[in-house]
């Protein structure tokens, strides 16, 4: 009887949609207990817990995604929503236009260049190097760039998420250690290096950081798809 219920629920989208929401709410509550601790990143915690549940229960990713896709779909409108603070704080953005464009070009070249350099250093095959190169951009762009370079888009997606979480965890301690107080600069750097996951972190720290992070993410998506050809 209970086995029948499990089979019924495990294949329905509702169970995995609810799991994702509940795990996320629990993860943000845990992260909120110690706001200064960047290691308690709610995105990383949620992914780890859900991945563990799926592995233990023997559920494959496609079955999970049937439920989780309703949340995944909102990435599109959420990206559009990044344009609204852009409109609200247009004068702040305009007054930072020159530093933004310089940081964009140098940062984008550094992101791709350093990745390709270390990937060669560790002796990865050319198709793996191509899969890693666009890792600082938002997943959709990174996967398109990767497949255009004969990389593996699925590997790219995994590394993009890893890069986002890494940036979200290290950005606050790093910027504090370097005594950087300008949240427009801090936000721009994390959006460029760590796309939307960095932007989610930036919004949880400071609204101005979030605004500049979103701009950096958008700009870098465009620029990376051009400059990967410089390195590969």
């Amino acid at each position: 009887m209970t086995e029948g219920l499990w089979v019924y629920l495990a294949t329905s989208p509702l169970l995995w949609l609810v799991t994702t929401l509940v795990v996320w709410l629990a993860a943000t509550a845990i992260a909120g207990l110690s706001p200064g601790n960047a290691l308690l990143n709610p995105i990383m915690l949620s992914i780890a817990v859900i991945a563990a549940i799926l592995c233990i229960a023997g559920i494959d990713y496609d079955a999970y995604f049937k439920g989780a896709q309703f949340i995944h779909f909102l990435l599109g409108p959420a990206t559009v929503a990044l344009g609204i603070p852009l409109y609200e704080k247009l004068s702040l953005v305009k007054s930072n236009l020159v530093p933004m464009l310089c940081a964009l070009v140098v940062g984008s070249l550094t992101a791709v260049g350093s990745t390709v350099f270390f990937a060669h250093l560790f002796g990865f095959a050319p198709d793996v190097v191509a899969s890693l190169a666009p890792k600082s951009t938002t997943a959709a762009v990174a996967m398109a760039v990767s497949s255009g370079l004969n990389g593996d888009p699925a590997l790219t997606a995994a590394v993009v998420v890893l890069t986002g979480i890494c940036g979200a965890i290290v950005v606050t301690p790093m910027m504090n250690a370097m005594r950087i107080k300008d949240f427009s600069a801090r936000g721009f750097a994390v959006g460029l290096a760590s796309h939307g996951i960095g932007t989610a972190r930036a919004y949880s720290v400071d609204p101005v950081a979030g605004l500049f992070s979103g701009i950096a993410m958008g700009f870098n998506a465009v620029l990376t798809s051009l400059i990967v050809h410089v390195f590969l």
Partner: peptide, 24 residues
């Protein structure tokens, strides 16, 4: 107002794609 709600909860939107790591 809607964008404020969406951007305040941006993080959860990356969880479904992130769980894809179990394929690797």
């Amino acid at each position: 107002d809607t964008s404020k709600v969406v951007l305040a909860n941006l993080g959860i939107l990356f969880v479904p794609a992130g769980v894809g790591i179990i394929q690797h």
